[in-house]
């Protein structure tokens, strides 16, 4: 197990390094940040001066070497847009809001999707199952930006049940969490349903009934643990979807998290902040994957010994 974790940690570092290369290159192909930063009347000498100040006059590989050298020490440079703030400082400042929203959305989606998925498998073919399938279909086909605006229009503007935007108490979280989480609800539910159906049909379920085991125990002990293995792998992907989803959702609801931060940073060509956000997102994504792998081995003994 220790070897497994060590190996995975090494792979993770490699992945983050590759990620840094990609993001470093990508932000630079979006255009010259000075076009956005400097006023329209700025002359070539202004360009040269600011370029030199930020180190943008150096060849790209030198810039990358400097970036990498500082990044491994946790320093992603200073923001160009938000003067006096370090890029990483901004990320840390905004991250709690994003984690709060994503965590809440994940919690809500698991709490809803797991039982609904299990019950819709157990009651396959009934009205309940159909209702669950419709919810899943809607969740997977409604785009977040549209869903967010419609929810806001119905529940915040017309009914006035929730505030339209901003961050505050739990009432501020409900609409963004639904927007962010519905897709996940649908995906988890469908996965749980299909793997439950498969497991419910297996011989060991028959055997546990033959033993005289109560049906709820057959379902929630024997089936769920087996059926949870497939959806669990999906949690790793969900972590990514929640991170990227936060970009859209936070923009719609003006939720002051990293998603909103990165949108503003991209608009301002604030390379330092974009780089910091993407690397942190990648780190969170990779960490979640690692946790899922460990949890996976815990749930399925067949993996532990391989």
């Amino acid at each position: 197990m220790q070897r497994f974790i060590a190996k995975r940690a090494l792979q993770s570092l490699l992945a983050i390094w590759v990620m840094s290369l990609i993001v470093f290159t990508l932000v630079r192909v979006t255009g010259n940040p000075l076009d956005v930063m400097l006023p329209l009347e700025a002359g070539p000498e202004d360009y040269a001066r600011v370029s030199k100040h930020w180190g943008l006059d150096q060849p790209v590989y030198v810039q990358y070497a400097i970036f990498l050298g500082k990044a491994v020490q946790g320093d992603f440079g200073n923001s160009w847009k938000w003067h006096g703030h370090s890029a990483m400082g901004l990320v840390w400042q905004r991250l709690p809001a994003t984690l709060q929203l994503a965590g809440f959305a994940l919690l809500v989606s698991v709490v809803i999707a797991l039982p609904v998925g299990v019950l819709s498998a157990v009651m396959k073919g009934t009205v309940w199952d159909t209702v669950a399938k419709v919810i899943a279909l809607l969740g997977q086909s409604l785009p977040a930006f549209w869903l967010g605006i419609v929810l806001m229009w119905i529940f915040a503007v017309n009914l006035g049940w929730f505030p339209t935007s901003g961050r505050g108490g739990i009432q501020y979280m409900i609409l963004p969490a639904i927007t962010l989480g519905w897709f996940q609800v649908a995906a988890i539910m469908r996965l749980v349903r299909s793997s439950m159906l498969e497991v419910l049909d297996s011989e060991f379920v028959k055997l546990s009934r033959i033993k005289g085991l109560a049906e709820w125990k057959v379902v929630w002990k024997h089936c769920l643990r087996n059926a949870a293995i497939a959806p669990l792998t999906f949690f790793a992907i969900i972590a990514g979807v929640l991170m990227t989803g936060s970009v859209v959702t936070e923009s719609v609801f003006s939720w002051p998290g990293t998603g909103l931060l990165v949108v503003d940073a991209v608009r301002a060509r604030d390379f330092q902040v974009v780089q910091a956000v993407v690397i942190v997102f990648a780190g969170i994504f990779i960490l979640t994957n690692l946790l899922v792998d460990i949890l996976y081995a815990y749930l399925d003994p067949r993996i532990r010994y391989q």
């Binding site: 297996s202 011989e203 060991f204 028959k206 055997l207 546990s208 009934r209 033959i210 033993k211 005289g212 085991l213 109560a214 049906e215 024997h222 643990r225 087996n226 293995i229 749930l299 399925d300 003994p301 067949r302």
Partner: peptide
């Protein structure tokens, strides 16, 4: 159904066809 559960395993029991899948893989 409750009375049947007390009978299954206790008074009448069954061995299934395929041992490879008759045991739950995630429990000892």
């Amino acid at each position: 159904e409750r009375e049947m559960r007390a009978i299954r395993g206790r008074r009448i029991s069954m061995i299934l066809q395929d041992p490879q899948t008759s045991l739950n893989p995630v429990f000892t």
